[in-house]
């Protein structure tokens, strides 16, 4: 039963991580690829962390060994750090891309570019 549950969670994680990799081929430019790569990976990796937490909780109640609680704590810290750094790095990459003059492909609207043009395009030099 434990392995069915943990296995199902890992399969969901695998599915989303796979989609994240697949989106690198599907999407046209850096911004849209960031959506796929960082976010599907977050959701996928969160499910992997969830699977490990569930596994350690179940094993703790079965065996009563303290090391499973340590595993649980470390997994939760890793998940929290992942959430913070993922958002920050995605934002940093997108901002750096836009500042270095890379415009979004197939964009229907680009308010940031309009604003920089009004200022004389200084941010792109």
């Amino acid at each position: 039963m434990t392995f069915l549950l943990v296995g199902a969670l890992l399969l969901v994680s695998l599915f989303f991580n796979g989609l994240g990799a697949f989106s690198l081929y599907r999407f046209p430019d850096v911004y849209t690829r960031l959506h796929g790569a960082t976010k599907c990976t977050t959701f996928g990796t969160l499910f992997a962390a969830f699977a490990v937490s569930l596994f350690s909780v179940i094993r703790f109640f079965e065996t009563g060994e303290g090391r499973f609680i340590v595993l649980l704590i470390h997994t939760l810290i890793a998940a929290a750090v992942l959430l913070i750094t993922n958002a920050t790095s995605a934002h940093a990459i997108a901002r750096a891309a836009h500042r270095s003059g890379l415009l979004p492909a197939r964009a229907v609207v680009d308010r940031l570019e309009e604003k920089e043009e009004m200022k004389g395009g200084a941010a792109h030099d």
């Binding site: 960031l34 960082t38 940031l112």
Partner: peptide, 25 residues
């Protein structure tokens, strides 16, 4: 807010200016 927007797929905060406008891809 910016982190929540970025973590939610489909939206990505690109920049925030001094007047508090969020530029979101």
């Amino acid at each position: 807010l910016a982190d929540s927007i970025t973590l939610t797929p489909g939206t990505l905060t690109v920049d925030i200016d001094d007047e508090g406008w969020f530029y979101i891809h």
